[in-house]
Amino acid sequence: MQGVFDKIIAEPFRDLFQRMIEFLPNLLSSIIVLGIGLIIAWAVKVLLQKLLQIFNIDNVCKRVGLTDILQKGGFKDSPSNLICKGIYGIVLVIFVIMALYSLKIDAIENLIEKFFLYLPNIFVAIILIIFGYVLSNFFSRAVLIAAVNRGIKHSGILYTTVKVAIMVLTITMALEQLGIGKDTVIIAFSIIFGGAVFAVSLAFGLAGKEIAKEFLEKRIKRDSEPEEPEDELKHL
């Protein structure tokens, strides 16, 4: 009876206790690592804040237009604050990972390994989205200004089209990088983009037939006989 009790009840408890005893130093070291991480992250944040203030990063960002981009992107903090918060977060994440590692639990170690392997994809996707956003703003604005200066009515539609097209392309690339619905996203993008281009070509072809004819006639005419200028005002 005593043997049965020992085997069924006492031994597992002894094992558990033994394991807890073995685990406790890991837990303790993990807590210490986390504590040190918090202090270092805070110190780095404060130090960086001072450094960025000395170099007047906020004004530099304002001058190069980065503040404007961030505000348009919904970030209300100043660029220096954002940098400090970002670095604080990164340092903290590094120490959290170190703390988890020091627990020496296989499942967690596997998860961390997978996370680390996936991390570059997240980083590249974020960079892609930021670049896409900046490029979409730049090119859509350039198209809008050129269209307005050409006197094209409803230039706003061109602006939106360019902006949306670049953002859709960027998001597709980012999702592909993250490996989310890889094939589905590319197929969906190809269908939507191809369809849109086909629709626009068709619309231009049907609606702009007369305009194209007129344009070509004018060009051929202009080459053979110079037309009388409509506006004789000289700007320069």
Binding site: R141, L144, I145, A147, V148, N149, G151, K153, S155, G156, Y159, P229, E230, D231, E232, L233
Partner: peptide
């Protein structure tokens, strides 16, 4: 000399409408 006033005014109005946000 010939001056296309209507053309200039049209472009002004278009600019105010479309570039307003800028």
């Amino acid at each position: 000399i010939k001056v296309n006033l209507d053309g200039m005014l049209d472009k002004f109005r278009l600019g105010v409408k479309e570039l307003g946000r800028m």
